[in-house]
Amino acid sequence: MIDTYTRMLETVAELADAPAADSAVHKLILHLRSAGRLRMLPQIVRELRKIAARKHALRPRVEVAHEKEATSALAAAAARGIEAPRALVNPALISGWRAQKAGILVDRSTKRALVDIYQNIIA
């Protein structure tokens, strides 16, 4: 039941505008109250938070070592189906870029290359 309500709110949040979503939440609360199931509300909120955290973790993301690599990195990532609005600068990459989306990772950074070589040597 909790799962169904959560999915419904998630769908409304994705498809409808803000007032419509507010209205859906309001109607859900009224429904839960009339059905005597208002105690479900905290659990529904918890599930929605989980979904939001998952979406945040799996959002499209492109990282580059230097600002100057951003354009080419965004293009290369887009060619592999990962489209992000902008590239984040992460100096830990040393050079190159990496992109992530919904559980897919493309890593073309020097850091990854060095870690791979190091692990191959010590294995």
């Binding site: 998952r54 897919i104 890593d107």
Partner: peptide
């Protein structure tokens, strides 16, 4: 060493405890 051509599948640990990890993705 050659860079991996394809993309790899990854996940992110959402919660971990008691030797069990809950992973988003994968």
């Amino acid at each position: 060493w050659t860079p991996q051509e394809g993309a790899e599948e990854v996940g992110v640990v959402r919660a971990a405890g008691d030797g069990i990890a809950e992973i988003d993705g994968l």
